[in-house]
Design a binder for these strands. Structure first.
Lengths: 183, 183
DNA sequence: CGACACATGTAACACGTTACATGATTTG
DNA sequence: CAAATCATGTAACGTGTTACATGTGTCG
């Protein structure tokens, strides 16, 4: 959905063709999320099929610009006016991984947590380094978003560490779950 | 990748069939992420194709359990020993949306931020309510993960608000970016 | 019996990635 | 000229979702 609406938003500025769209998309996030050129064309095809964009007559230099339609305009307005729901975000691989690690025999959960923490701190430093190069506000905010997320991840991993320590402690305090051994 | 490795992890406990796998997967995250039964079977097919699992002879009650292979075991170990990289996580729709909102004509960015903030706070409350019902540690940590993420989102949105206020202020203090007015 | 849950699958589609094919234009 | 970049596409594949088809077993 991100790419579909992203392209619509860019076309709201005015007609553009495939390559321009990719460049503009990547520029608006400072090149953080490279966009495959193939996907631009397939997405444009689907947008055209759904009457959200319309191809303009081929350019003098052989380019095929698209313009947004009224329907596309409406769809974009809807996108901007409704929040991104947590429900339709993809499953968080890290959370699943840790939850499963805890019930999988022979897995050193603490090691999993530590490995992830090291990686998270490293990317956090990388983002901080990148911030010194960010010059325009949208890109800066995108970077800040990733920093906030990475920080939350580190905090959560520390929280997991602490919980595990309490859980593995000689005197288990609370509830213990039955491990279902299927057969 | 989450589902694929998730099923492998569950099979590491012992042989299971499709329906059991879905139930176990959903249970390990407290039903936070419902798993489509169709996907279980297609994923199992792919895992079998890649020699990561192996079907066992059909049960007396007509069920088809699978067991993990040596290769599957190795693949799972690899998954647990390597961190989830930020690079191969999907694009964050919210970040893209806000970055584009800022350069799209006719969009009230502050309104977009506020709408999203309201939604985020609401889900945050919902998670907190759910926490009182969480009884086992893995589920609790998954919930905490979502809480930490939602909190980070709220903080980031407030940060955006503040940045926007500074940006739109009559006396811009520091670096000002060119506003591209298309047309 | 009829409804419901269990259980296994298939088909179609959306989205995303990688790789390849094919030309035009620019530049060293 | 040769290589690189611009530009438009197509094909194949992985992952995920929704919907449908089909059968069994259980329970009111």
């Amino acid at each position: 959905m991100s790419v579909k609406h992203g392209l619509l938003a860019l076309l709201e500025r005015g007609p553009m063709y495939g390559y321009q769209l990719r460049a503009a998309f990547e520029a608006s996030t400072g090149g953080t999320w490279p966009l495959n050129i193939g996907q631009v064309y397939t997405t444009l095809s689907r947008l055209e099929r759904d009457d959200l964009v319309r191809p303009l007559p081929e350019n003098d230099t052989g380019q095929r610009p698209y313009e947004i339609t009224e329907q596309g305009h409406a769809e974009l307005a809807k996108w901007f006016s409704s929040p991104v729901s947590r429900a339709d975000r993809p499953r968080d691989e890290l959370a699943i991984k840790l939850a499963l690690a805890m019930t999988t025999p022979g897995v050193d959960v603490r090691a999993v947590v530590q490995t992830q923490r090291t990686a998270a701190v490293r990317t956090l430093q990388e983002y901080t380094r990148l911030k010194t190069k960010a010059d325009d506000l949208p890109w800066l905010l995108v970077l800040d978003n990733m920093i906030f997320q990475a920080e939350a991840e580190v905090r959560w991993l520390d929280h997991c560490e602490a919980s595990l320590a309490r859980y593995e402690a000689p005197e288990p305090v609370v509830t213990d779950t039955e491990i279902e051994v299927p057969r």
